[in-house]
């Protein structure tokens, strides 16, 4: 299933397919190790439009909702 990051259910893993944003956004995400092709695990999604907490390469990173909406992911099925 292909969807944006903020819609991935808590606990599920997803592969980043594309980042729909400018170079600034791509670089800010890349600094923390988020690149197309990486697998991330959604730890929890904040309520009331809060940020998405993901685990990536062993670190946990909070990503604001607006940015999460620009990250296209493919959910890894049957785990």
């Amino acid at each position: 299933m292909i969807t944006t990051l903020e819609r991935v259910r808590d606990g599920a893993s997803a592969v980043v397919r594309d980042i729909h944003g400018g170079r600034m956004l791509r670089q800010r995400l890349a600094r923390l190790g988020v690149h197309p092709g990486d697998t991330v695990r959604v730890v929890r999604t904040g309520y009331f439009g809060g940020p998405v907490l993901i685990e990536i390469h062993g670190a946990e990173v909070a990503i604001g909702r607006g940015m999460a909406q620009k990250i296209e992911t493919e959910v890894v099925e049957n785990q």
Binding site: G46, Y47, F48, G50, P51, L53, A62, G64, R65, G66
Partner: peptide
């Protein structure tokens, strides 16, 4: 503190800032 920022992000967004 980073956890407080996580919780407050959505509220701070309403005034144009972030967590």
């Amino acid at each position: 503190l980073p956890r407080a920022a996580f919780l407050m992000d959505t509220i701070m967004h309403r005034i144009g800032l972030h967590g």
